[in-house]
């Protein structure tokens, strides 16, 4: 019964949507203070490799690896962010783009550790570990009518959904707080924000580091869902994918990049023929969105129409 309804392929697509939503959140949170980072793919790579190497080489539990991956990405984010923030937004975009490329170069060349462009395989997978754990504790997926692989994919998806809910809750709460107001103020008018006593360097680094942590976190999860990674997974194209989530979905409200990530992950799955022309279409989407709807598909008025938010005024900050 339950087993007939669950197609592992759909579950896996669902998992990718969840991971991509985290990436969408990472670019959203940096944009929420008015900064464009093109380094998400690089931070994702740092998170993925850090966690993969720690779990492969030192047998650390996945959860420790994932947290370490996110933290290392965050620390490097701070190191990259501080010098770039001394100048205008354009420099940050270039510096982060360059950083992504440097990361890729290092991953390819540091062969003794990263196995070069072949990449790492045999990374402990969340699903398998869960299966092992449930077996050890005497639970069999068969008892609820599931095959092993159905159980594995279902559990992974469930975990990712829970993580996403927590992250979205966290970010919405943050948006409605003093920190969120400071981000929004900096985005709207940096000079005025500064004149209101906001330490713009601190808040810009904070939002940039949060973005890096989220990217690193998503990368680490990606590694432990896929089981293998290579530098190509974290190339410039990945950075463009992530940028599209926010630009297409909407960069002013959190639901925008969530929608963008889900939609853009599903699209090539649903329309197979698109996949070959994917980046041609992405390119056009970026140009057209900037010309006709720079705020993205989902914006505040649309949310109000859909009654997804209370009238914005009620709770202050947009979310």
């Amino acid at each position: 019964m339950l087993g007939d309804l669950i197609n592992p392929y759909y579950l896996q697509v669902g998992s990718f949507i969840m991971i991509n939503i985290i990436l969408g959140l990472s670019i959203y949170i940096t944009l929420s203070s008015g900064q464009l980072s093109l380094g998400s793919a690089g931070f994702m790579g740092i998170g993925a490799y850090t966690s993969a190497l720690l779990t492969i080489n030192y047998d650390l539990p996945i959860i420790v690896g994932v947290i370490a991956g996110a933290l290392v990405a965050g620390i490097i984010g701070i190191l990259i962010g501080i010098p770039s923030l001394r100048l205008t937004g354009v420099y940050l975009a270039i510096a982060t783009l360059g950083f992504g490329e440097v990361m890729r170069v290092f991953l390819v060349n540091w062969e003794s550790v990263t196995k070069g462009s072949v990449g790492l395989s045999g990374i402990p997978q969340i699903g398998r570990e869960l299966l092992k754990f449930s077996r050890d504790s005497g639970f069999s997926p068969m008892s609820i009518g599931l095959k092993n692989n159905q159980f594995v994919y279902l559990m992974v998806l469930l975990i990712l959904v829970i993580i996403n809910i927590l992250l979205i809750w966290f970010l919405i709460r943050q948006n409605k707080s003093r920190v969120g107001r400071a981000f929004a103020a900096i985005k709207m008018d940096e000079k005025a924000a500064e004149a209101m006593g906001i330490n713009i360097t601190y808040y810009k680094v904070l939002s940039f580091a949060q973005g890096a942590i989220l990217s690193g976190f998503a990368g680490a999860l990606f590694a432990h869902v896929m089981g293998y990674i290579s530098p190509a997974d974290f190339s410039y194209h990945r950075a463009v994918d992530i940028l599209i989530y926010a630009v297409f979905g909407g960069s002013e409200v959190i639901w925008g990049s969530i929608f963008g990530a889900a939609f853009m992950t599903l699209l090539p799955e649903v329309l197979r023929f698109i996949s070959e022309y994917r980046y041609l279409i992405y390119g056009l989407v970026l140009v057209l969105m900037m010309a006709f709807r720079p705020q993205g598909i989902i914006d505040v008025p649309l949310l109000q129409k859909l009654h997804l938010t209370k009238r914005r005024s009620k709770h202050g900050s947009k979310n």
Binding site: V90, L243, Y279, Y282, G283, L284, M290
Partner: peptide, 26 residues
């Protein structure tokens, strides 16, 4: 299309030209 339009962020031309670059590459 982006020039002189109200409310267009300074990031818009950057994103728009990234779009062109992806398009041309592919």
């Amino acid at each position: 299309p982006l020039r002189g339009k109200k409310g267009v962020s300074h990031l818009a031309p950057l994103i728009s030209t990234i779009g062109v670059s992806i398009f041309l590459e592919n």
